[in-house]
Nucleic acid binder design. Structure first.
Lengths: 166, 166
DNA sequence: TATTGTTATACTCTATAACTATA
DNA sequence: TATAGTTATAGAGTATAACAATA
């Protein structure tokens, strides 16, 4: 007989972490070819995309917004700078590494966007534009909700900040 | 003036791949400590979780269901077997590597589930149980929709199966 | 003293191709 | 001949700690 914990458990498809992973995997498989064909990695592309909406951003902001750890971001900066897609920007606070797109970087961004836009439109149409919008809202609100839980140290979680053994 | 492609583009927060990534990152940060504290990796945990709902599964099924590539799965099998959490099961088709949880594996599964269930409940309550359910449905349907698009070779995508240069 | 970012390092996952065994 | 899985291997991401520079 199944134990209570097993019975209470949501089915595999109803597991939030797994559903997020599998949806992301499928979405990535759809769009990654467009990124690959321009010799960009997905994290590199997220950086270009974030910069395309801002004049310039610092490493900390990009790390948070693109879900990239600082050491990875350092390498990404190096790669994109060498290829002439981004450039450093002077900043009052000399500690901050601020970057922006170069003309070539913006051109690269536009090229990839134009190439992949049809697939995005096709997906939106197939899935339903309003449902896609609902999904996006729910995803962003879920993130906020989790963020709040993690900020409020009230739960019975295992060793949080100081990671366990390993 | 912004180019058409840029204007047509959804804002950063409205990008599906990025929204999925960021939501998953937050969710992972919430649950990963429970997995870590039992010296399991996330992929290992997904395998245990998938096996907990089935008597036995073969590598191909697990790879698809847990979003793990075959070579990774081979290593995961090795690790979980050495720790006595899974065991191989005889199969008619000698090519297939079928595995199931051992008693210790099921015990490990139950322990982790019981430890993390309070956080999941707290999240469900904070987010709204019915909204969480809607989100899960949308995620699973999104995956199906994308799957259909990828199966139907009709779009103007770049070199699909045969990856680009690299 | 706190913050920002880089370097160093180890480990894991990702991704392909080549190979073996079985059907 | 096709399928299932393993091995080999290269590369990229993940994660921490330690360090340098600046505030």
């Amino acid at each position: 007989m199944p134990t209570p914990a097993y019975k209470a458990l949501r089915k595999f498809e109803k597991s939030l972490p797994i559903a997020l992973l599998r949806s992301r995997e499928a979405t990535t498989r759809l769009f990654k070819p467009f990124i690959d064909s321009h010799d960009l990695t997905m994290p590199q592309w997220r950086v270009l995309r974030a910069l395309a909406e801002a004049d310039a951003l610092d490493a900390k902001t990009l790390a948070e917004r693109c879900v990239i750890l600082p050491p990875s971001l350092t390498r990404i900066f190096r790669g994109l700078t060498q290829r002439g897609l981004i450039e450093q920007v002077e900043c009052n606070d000399a500690r901050r590494h601020m970057v922006r797109l170069t003309a070539a970087g913006r051109e690269m961004f536009e090229t990839v966007v134009q190439a992949s836009e049809p697939s995005y439109s096709e997906l939106a149409e197939a899935f339903g534009p309003e449902r896609l919008d609902t999904l996006l809202d729910l995803l962003n609100e879920l993130r906020d909700t989790v963020q709040c839980m993690l900020d409020a140290p009230e739960d019975a979680a295992p060793v949080r900040k100081v990671a366990g053994r390993r």
